[in-house]
């Protein structure tokens, strides 16, 4: 019962969805301000969501209906799970189990996989093109990201979210060491790709692929996909905060400090998104498997040497 509450209401679905909408509004508003525009009103993400729920569902002819409609739900369930696990680890660091970090990393990949499966099921050429790009992007960013996480594991000598939290409480956050800084840079770049934001929004490239992987979705499934995206925008930086910046604390002033950490990270993401053009998929792969990978390896070596 308690776990159900945790999954559906507090750190889980409802909470993440509401904050996710707020965060996606901040994203759009900051983008608008960077471009010297006014930007959408506060409740815009909610309006979008409700409107999409009220629209007609169209399943393209020849598409595999069940897969097409269920794939977005898997993504939503996965991102909810990641969010609940991370928040539970901050709320009750001593619960959890050894290896929950690895579970989080795996579950974090599921939204992308769900999008890929849904796109292939829609039997649309443009969607499959987008899906194949998404797949390559996943291959590209997963390796450096794992290296970055490895630095955290080496430093804290634990694959347990709660222990990582405790380690950073006693020895200061991972980000305050040299290897931590490098790992964080790698992780932020990978996060940009995982969120498929510009410069790595290659799978959905509005201008060439017309929404790419989402091209055939309409109505409620599209609403779920959009909601998943918004929740990812909240959850993934939260994972970074937990792993590299010492996690969220709830005592007194620490709350403000925790929120500040998250907001700074979010603004960094939004600024990267607004100051870069989209790259090609081969450029993205070369980027992640070249320079980023090297930085990642350097970070791991530094961590092993104790810096």
């Amino acid at each position: 019962m308690e776990y159900l509450f945790a999954y559906v209401i507090f750190p889980g679905f409802l909470f993440t969805a509401v904050v996710g909408m707020l965060v996606s509004w901040i994203d759009r508003k900051v983008t608008a301000r960077v471009q010297w525009r006014v930007g959408p009103p506060l409740f815009q993400p909610l309006y979008d969501f409700v409107k999409l729920l009220g629209k007609e569902i169209i399943v393209p002819r020849g598409a595999s209906k069940a897969t097409f409609l269920l794939a977005p739900l898997f993504g939503l369930a996965a991102v909810t799970l990641v969010s609940s696990m991370i928040w539970m680890a901050s709320l009750y660091p001593d619960r959890g189990f050894v290896g929950d970090l690895i579970v989080v990393i795996y579950v974090m990949m599921i939204p992308s996989i769900a999008v890929i499966i849904g796109a292939f099921a829609s039997k649309n050429r443009i969607a499959s093109l987008g899906a194949s790009r998404e797949m390559k992007l996943m291959l590209a960013d997963e390796l450096p990201f794992l290296l970055a996480v490895m630095v955290v594991i080496i430093k804290s000598e634990a694959v347990h979210l709660g222990q990582i939290y405790h380690y950073q409480e006693t020895y200061g956050m991972i980000f305050s060491s040299w290897s931590g800084v490098l790992a964080m840079i790698v992780a932020v770049l990978c996060m940009q790709a995982k969120l498929t934001l510009v410069p790595f929004d290659i799978p959905e490239a509005e201008t060439e692929l017309m929404g790419g992987v989402f091209v055939e979705y309409s109505g409620p499934p599209l609403a779920v996909l959009k909601l998943t995206r918004m929740m990812m925008l909240f959850t993934l930086p939260m994972v970074m905060v937990h792993l590299f910046l010492g996690g969220v604390h709830f005592q007194g002033m620490d709350i403000l400090w925790s929120i500040l950490k998250y907001v700074v990270l979010l603004v960094v993401i939004v600024l990267i998104r607004n100051t870069n053009p989209r790259v090609r998929i081969d450029q993205a792969m070369r980027f992640f498997w070249g320079p980023v990978l090297i930085i990642g390896i350097a970070a791991v070596i530094l961590a092993l040497l104790g810096f």
Partner: peptide, 14 residues
């Protein structure tokens, strides 16, 4: 126009 919630989308499905 985004202040009225209007955005251009790439696919007629959206």
């Amino acid at each position: 126009l985004e202040r009225l919630g209007i955005v251009l989308v790439g696919s007629p499905r959206h």
